[in-house]
Design a protein around this nucleic acid. Structure first.
Lengths: 246, 246
DNA sequence: CGTGTTCTTGACACTATTCAATGAATGTGG
DNA sequence: CCACATTCATTGAATAGTGTCAAGAACACG
């Protein structure tokens, strides 16, 4: 969160304290909050990998977004009566809860923190819109490439990555649920991307072998992530981490 | 906006005044703000029909959302460097501008109004997520049905509708751009829906002949619109307008 | 070592796209 | 008020891309 807005020391301290207060470990494939439930707390991913998803009447699951460390799951849940989708872990994760009233207080009285949350919400919206384009206008190969490139960038931005290699322990079924394709077709497209030497997969670790090539296949434009703030900040670590990719 | 949160008289008065201050008529098919542009003002649709869209490198357009009266176009634009998508009108529309600094002030100092904007943002996100499901998991016929049912409901909620008949002057190309289908296929699916006596189209006016049937085809679950607040408010006009549909 | 999950492969069906042409409706200028 | 241009809706035929089904291989785990 801190990449795009400079927190005051007081704000940073306050946030650190809040996040430390109420942490909970979740195993893999556990729900953090389910569709239809209400929560007075909001949740933030501290480590691991989670996702927003929805189960449809016919039993299929659609993953709408992956959540990585630093992502708020449901920053404004406390104003809603109930969740319209579920949030669950993919891998074991550490999740922090912040009481809704505290959250409300932050949003109204801590402009710096409020700004960071708004920014996060806007990035979320951008990601969602891009996924609509993804599903509406890109073919299967591009979609998969797009998802991989986006994960690369987001993981870079928060630093949970080793150059071009990152931990992304999803099954092909997960990817199918996230891209709106069938697992069989995901498999074929992944094979293609590997044959083209764009990516490599070793167990839970993915490597982007040819970022420029992958980006081209994905027809990736980074503007929707609004990482430009990071790019412009002279001292930003994030800027360095994203160099050459956006 | 006022359907889901009770504004104080002061808040309502203030908003009315702000919205009245800076209005502009836009013709049909005009851009209100373009991708890559920054604006210090935010925009709100007062009348007409607009849409969020993006033009891709290959020239195709993807419409990501339709905007109807009462919808803020870009409530938090002032914190971003530039828009990641464009907003344009479909029909002649009346658009109000509110200066960003005023907006910031409202968000931080007028909890009632801030709540309404947050709610609006959350509904927006819900609509985007649902569209992802739509494109990922529904077939063409359901997608079209879904879009129509959603417009019916949203127009009902704000009252710009005559029972089951509403003005929705989009071309089949627009619908194709919104659903990620080709115009040819949209045409075929619309014919099917008309043959099934689910809808009727007379020029710019659409009529939902069989709401329950259409809803079934669309596999529509209304929870993502978070209209439940309206449903629960004892005196809500919106509740009556939505009766039987959600 | 057996069991369940995940990945991979092939054959085939089907949905939606592409391309191309026609017709209907609408708008425009003389 | 008509001739013409333009946009929009409709139709048909051929094709590409993805889904479906089914079965075997590789791998992980208790």
């Amino acid at each position: 969160m801190e990449q795009f807005t400079a927190f005051s020391d007081a704000d940073r301290h306050l946030l650190n304290e809040l996040l430390a207060q109420n942490q909970k470990h979740h195993g893999a494939r556990e729900d953090i909050i389910r569709e239809g439930e209400h929560s007075d707390d909001i949740h933030i991913v501290l480590s691991g990998l989670a996702c927003r998803y929805k189960i449809l009447e016919n039993g299929t699951r659609q993953i709408m977004a992956f959540l990585i460390p630093g992502d708020p799951c449901d920053a404004e849940i406390f104003i809603l009566k109930e969740m319209d989708h579920s949030i669950g872990t993919v891998t074991p994760s550490l999740i922090s809860s912040v009481p809704g009233h505290t959250m409300k207080d932050l949003l109204l009285n801590r402009p710096g923190i409020a700004l960071a949350f708004w920014w996060s919400t806007l990035q979320d919206e951008g990601i969602l819109r891009e996924r609509i384009i993804d599903e509406g206008r890109r073919d299967a190969r591009s979609r998969i490439a797009f998802l991989i490139y986006e994960m690369l960038l987001r993981m870079r931005a928060v630093g949970v990555i080793d150059d071009l290699r990152f931990e992304f322990p999803v099954t092909q079924v997960d990817l199918a649920d996230a891209t709106g394709l069938t697992p069989v077709h995901v498999n074929r497209m992944l094979q293609q991307l590997r044959e083209e030497k764009l990516i490599a997969i070793e167990g839970r670790y993915w490597t982007v072998l040819d970022p420029a090539g992958l980006r081209k296949v994905a027809r990736f434009e980074a503007n929707y992530l609004h990482l430009d703030r990071a790019k412009d900040q002279p001292d930003s670590e994030a800027r360095d981490r994203l160099k050459g990719l956006i």
